[in-house]
């Protein structure tokens, strides 16, 4: 759906030319939720603005569906943009218009017939769950509601692609999850291709299928989310992974002295890989008929797999313990034996 080939873009800052996007190649399949994660200044916003031609590239090629964005003229780009929705960190609504009129704005630009606008606006308001607020002004809405208006506006012309530039970065964690769920639902319902830019690992983990890690204008790593999480190659990815785990309280104090060594071997399980599922532990409990006890830790779900650490106590030793760990290993759950069972 979206192809970038060796895309470069630099900005003139005074006398020096700063490369913001430095030879990026990406291939984003139709219907995917594709995340681009990177720290501030990595060039993410520039990259996403190149995709809808708000910024012109220096070299390389970009195609979105049938459209060669890198060659298209301004008029052609303008005609194509209603089919490429975009949402923003700061929502960018017109404060002089009501919710309904903000959504209608996208339809007016695309040249919709006047008579068709109210019906379509009502549909969109329902889709994003803003019934009853259509006559409110943006200043009367919460951040999450403003982003819902932004999403409705971006979807108004039934786009094939939705570009999200830090769409949840101005929202609190709960609102972030609500908006991410909405995006994920829209992706499933309409088969929309979503490109999502963020500096939060949590966002990628929660809804992305594929992820590209960006650093200093380059893609340093890319692939399925669970793959990239399982085998972080670059230093940046590892930093993001630590951010994710730290954010969820894993690695905080587990009081080893409080663990009764008589209850089994203390094992640290690491969920990393495409097969890792939270349910695997329950399967092991059933399969071996062992009361495995979870002591500490957190496993977070990505779209296809789980990541994180768990400290568990397995009431088994030697061969039986090895069997259990092998069972888990097959399901992409690595293990470290921290303490063996001691019988009184």
């Amino acid at each position: 759906m979206i192809e970038l080939h060796n895309v470069r873009k630099s900005f003139q800052q005074g006398r020096v030319s700063v490369p913001a996007v430095d030879g990026v190649s990406l291939s984003i399949a139709r219907g995917q939720i594709f995340g681009v994660i990177g720290y501030s200044g990595a060039g993410k916003s520039t990259l996403i603005r190149l995709i809808n031609g708000l910024e012109h590239l220096d070299s390389g090629t970009i195609t979105v569906g049938e459209l060669d964005v890198s060659r298209a003229g301004e008029a052609e780009l303008r005609r194509a943009r209603p089919k490429i929705g975009m949402i923003f960190q700061h929502f960018n609504l017109l404060w002089s218009r009501t919710v309904a009129a903000n959504i209608a704005f996208a339809l007016e630009i695309a040249g919709a017939r006047k008579a068709d606008i109210p019906g379509r606006v009502a549909e969109l308001i329902k889709l994003v769950g803003l019934e009853g607020r259509e006559h409110a002004y943006p200043s009367q809405l919460s951040g999450g509601q403003k982003q819902r208006v932004g999403i409705a506006r971006a979807l108004a012309n039934r786009p094939d692609v939705l570009l999200c530039d830090e769409a949840t970065s101005a929202l609190d964690p709960e609102t972030t999850d609500a908006i991410l769920d909405l995006l994920s639902g829209i992706n499933r319902q309409f088969g929309l291709t979503i490109v999502l830019i963020t500096h939060e690992m949590h966002v990628v983990r929660r809804i992305c299928d594929q992820v590209a890690v960006m650093d200093a204008g380059r893609i340093v790593e890319a692939g399925a989310v669970s793959e990239v999480f399982a085998r972080p190659q670059s230093e940046v990815t590892q930093r993001f992974l630590r951010q994710l785990l730290a954010g969820e309280g894993v690695g905080e104090s587990l009081d080893l002295n409080a663990v009764d060594p008589g209850q089994g071997a203390l094992v640290k399980l690491t969920y990393m890989g495409p097969q890792a599922r939270q349910a695997a532990l329950a399967d092991a409990i059933r399969h071996f008929d062992l009361p495995i006890n979870i002591l500490h830790g957190r496993v977070s779900r990505t779209r296809e797999a789980s990541v994180g650490d768990l400290y568990v106590q397995i009431p088994a030793s030697d061969e039986k313990l090895e069997e259990v760990l092998a069972f888990l290993r097959e399901r992409d759950i690595a293990s470290d034996i921290i303490g063996r069972e001691k019988r009184a």
Partner: peptide, 9 residues
């Protein structure tokens, strides 16, 4: 807001 308007075409 100008950016968003351009993005809508």
């Amino acid at each position: 807001v100008i950016e968003a308007t351009r993005a809508m075409g």
